[in-house]
Design a protein around this nucleic acid. Structure first.
Lengths: 329, 329
DNA sequence: CATTTATTTGTAAACGATTACATACAAATT
DNA sequence: AATTTGTATGTAATCGTTTACAAATAAATG
């Protein structure tokens, strides 16, 4: 692979001139530009990002941190990030942290080392203090998950309000024994959604029964099914459930079906995230839609603004309750 | 961020010595090592990958090309690639090509420019001639999709045999009007699976009815549903369908349900890929499982072997027909 | 035509690491 | 004590760019 000097030699100019052609500097004569461009073609030359980045100390690469690739929840956000970034001359790289501090460190180092310019973190398990450190002199944005007490800018939805809206919907349908299938409450969104759940109960004068709250380890289908099994052992069974993720809801739906109950007649079910499968289940699933794609573009724009030296503020996005068959009356 | 010279100065040694400490060269005195390590800590120094890579012309970064993030098909393969790579000191970066030649080019350039060491391509729409060019002096492996006529090593399954196995299963259940919901036959796997479909018909003495073959634009649910609608207009309806992807099968299942037909009693259905949702549908879906994770690790090992200068051969992996409720008799 | 001004190009020093080679120093040998 | 040997460190070139600054060339002015 030829380098800039060989191109310069071939074209009979200096490497500086070649560089100027590459960077579309205005001071290059049409004639020399042609010579250089021809030489570039002849030698099949591609400028080395490595040399360029070293000199410019920027890479135009953005890192997107997600806990694991398997979660369909992230795909639309990523599409948004991707589209916006590419449009603005940045490429993104998806980084799976696996909630593994060592891997996480690799990615942090990529930023420290100028191999990447900034980070959009969607990892709820991210090491906040390290991220905070990094944020002192690097561009960082959090998406979906964030830390209420830190000042790293984020884009997210109002989880409490969303959960409240779900509950209101179920209560209006006449349910007064509503279960909550929540994930681990070490996650902020889980705590917030629980808050919304409890607030709705309180405001509508329904008692809070702790045995109707099931906390899962992760968001696998199995956990949703497991929750239903647990509830079925209760003396007084719930007639509806709000799962904080569509995957949990789909697992629950499966188990409800297995037990011969009809959804929504015998049991109503609401999920969260509006993943594409939620519209393919039988019955289709009522769920909360976040403006995923838009969250992605917003996060990307915030990051790029930071890179350009602007201050950015956190943003709360709207959400929407999508009512489908699983809660029809 | 401090650089190696500042560390050297702080420690009272030369930058060469610092570099030796960083690279664990054996010739460094314990005493100087300590001095250097202390200086590194004091200055909070992190070596720049940029400088290092430029000098060493290797980045220990691998690129994984996929057409889009949204397809759950890829997740397990990626996990395999990831695990193997990390274990061997490489990091992977996920690159969405969007079947966009320009984006594709960016990633190719990353390799040309030594920003990344090699590529695992899972993109069926990849520009083969460009990839071939790149493969002349760079490490490339194809996964799932490949080009029969090129010599880029690949890891894949025997699609024809898998399709044949599916058909045999359906035929044994007594079906003689079996539809094929295939994707665009510009893809190799689609052509191969069609071949298996036709071979089975022939060997079991069943007629090939072209109107029972539906080719889709993509793998969205809707396309599966659309296929069923199309078939329902036929004079003689199929009693079973083999969809070349679980997403298509799930869309088909939905539409079959909508039409009031019972699966598997009135209509049998087989998918492909064994995505996690295929076990959550009602009824659960018979499908073909590819050893995804293992394909990932294998592809990664092939790539890393190439990087170490070894020759590698293509590999065909086993597949497995997973019989579930959608084809019970 | 000589001089000034504007424009285009070249020179060389960064960026931050690694490493062949040279050198310094200590220990071992004569 | 002088010489040899071995080990630890330093010097400086290198990777491929970009960009102040200097230099050269062309155009404009008197």
């Amino acid at each position: 692979m030829a380098n800039i000097h060989e191109v310069a030699k071939q074209a009979g100019v200096s490497s500086a001139t070649v560089s100027r052609v590459l960077n579309e500097a205005p001071t290059v004569t049409e004639k020399t530009r042609q010579k250089v461009e021809q030489a570039i073609k002849q030698l099949n030359y591609e400028p080395s990002m490595l040399g360029r980045n070293l000199r410019n100390s920027e890479s135009r690469l953005l890192l997107v941190l997600i806990p694991n690739f398997s979660n369909p929840y992230y795909t639309e956000i990523i599409n948004g990030i991707e589209d916006y970034s590419v449009e603005h001359g940045y490429n993104i790289l998806l980084c799976e942290t696996d909630s593994n501090p060592k891997r996480e460190n690799t990615f942090f180092n990529m930023v420290k080392n100028k191999l990447a310019d900034g980070i959009i973190s969607m990892d709820p398990t991210v090491n906040m203090s390290k991220l905070q450190d990094l944020a002192l002199d690097h561009a960082i944005v959090m998406c979906s998950e964030y830390d209420e007490y830190e000042r790293i800018p984020y884009v997210a939805i109002d989880n409490e309000a969303a959960a409240y809206k779900v509950m209101k919907h179920l209560i209006r349908l006449g349910h007064d024994q509503i279960a909550l299938i929540n994930s681990d409450e070490k996650f902020l969104y889980a705590r917030q959604r629980r808050k919304g759940y409890e607030r709705a109960l309180e405001e509508f004068g329904l008692p809070l029964r702790n045995e109707l709250i099931y906390n899962t380890q992760n968001l696998d289908f199995q956990e949703g099914a497991q929750a239903i099994r647990k509830f079925s052992q209760l003396e007084r069974n719930p007639t509806a459930a709000f799962a904080v993720s569509d995957t949990l809801a789909i697992g629950a739906l499966k188990e409800v079906n297995v037990r011969g109950l009809k959804v929504p007649e015998d049991f109503a079910l609401v999920g969260f995230d509006n993943i594409s499968f939620s519209n393919m289940t039988n019955p289709t699933l009522t769920t909360v839609a976040q403006p995923m794609y838009q969250m992605g573009t917003t996060a990307a724009s915030m990051l790029i603004k930071q890179l350009q030296g602007q201050e950015v503020d956190s943003i709360m996005m709207d959400h929407e309750l999508i009512i489908r068959e699983s809660t029809l009356n």
